[in-house]
Nucleic acid binder design. Structure first.
Length: 219
DNA sequence: GACCAGGCACATC
DNA sequence: GATGTGCATGGT
């Protein structure tokens, strides 16, 4: 079976097994972007606590976040870990939106995707995954998000080499699937879901992988 | 108590 | 360019 076909088969299997994942949970575009930063190398439940604190203080707004002090912001997002760094990252993003789009996210997402992606990548604290998560989940742009689980799953199934790149993995999905925001959204979320259950960091093999397509493929 | 979580930037060789 | 390290809380 071709890699492309397997990428499609995986999706069907995962969707059938787990159903729609409902990412990104609720909220505005800004909330989604904040979540993308706050969940960096952090469980979603911890990121949620940080977002909840910001909501309580009524700080989910470009203007409000522009005026709050970095120290106050850091103390509020403490549960998400790396709070000093993340407070700066949020501040950098807010300045970026204020300076380039008059603080208007709609205006930001009106920009051509690759151009916006390149600009997002210049912001300190926003790398490939976060930039793509912002574009897909907040902007609704059909761009595939690659994360640590995606890498583990692809490499353990022999679909990419052990030493691969973000771009290579992204291309595999982009070239195999129809360009559909909803599918890209669900697929990434499903990979995280199955990864949590069957493809943890320290487990070299997993005989319960639901993606096995023949007895020789082990996740 | 060790290990992990929906990463990223920066120093150093 | 590739390898190593700091950042940090909270759940299992």
């Amino acid at each position: 079976m071709s890699k492309s076909k397997r990428i499609n088969t995986f999706y069907k299997k995962l969707y059938k097994r787990y159903g729609p994942q409902g990412w990104w949970p609720g909220g505005s575009k800004l909330e989604c972007i904040l979540g993308a930063v706050l969940t960096q190398n952090t469980s979603w439940t911890n990121a949620e606590k940080a977002i909840s604190n910001l909501k309580k203080e009524n700080l989910i707004g470009i203007e409000k976040l522009a005026f709050v002090s970095t120290e106050t912001l850091a103390s509020l997002i403490r549960p998400s870990g790396y709070y000093n760094q993340k407070a700066l990252k949020i501040k950098h993003f807010i300045s970026f939106v204020v300076e380039n789009y008059q603080g208007d996210l709609e205006r930001m997402f009106d920009e051509e995707t690759q151009e916006l992606r390149n600009k997002l990548l210049t912001i300190k604290g926003i790398g490939f995954e976060t930039a793509d998560a912002i574009l897909l989940y907040a902007g609704g742009v059909p761009i595939f998000v690659i994360d640590a689980y995606t890498y583990r799953i692809l490499s353990r199934h022999g679909l990419v080499a052990e030493y691969t790149t973000y771009e290579e993995m992204q291309e595999l999905f982009t070239d195999s699937l129809s360009e559909d925001t909803q599918i890209f959204n669900e697929y990434h979320a499903l990979l995280v879901k199955v990864g949590k259950e069957h493809c943890r960091k320290r487990s070299p093999v997993c005989d319960s992988c639901p993606l096995q397509y023949d007895p020789h493929t082990i996740l």
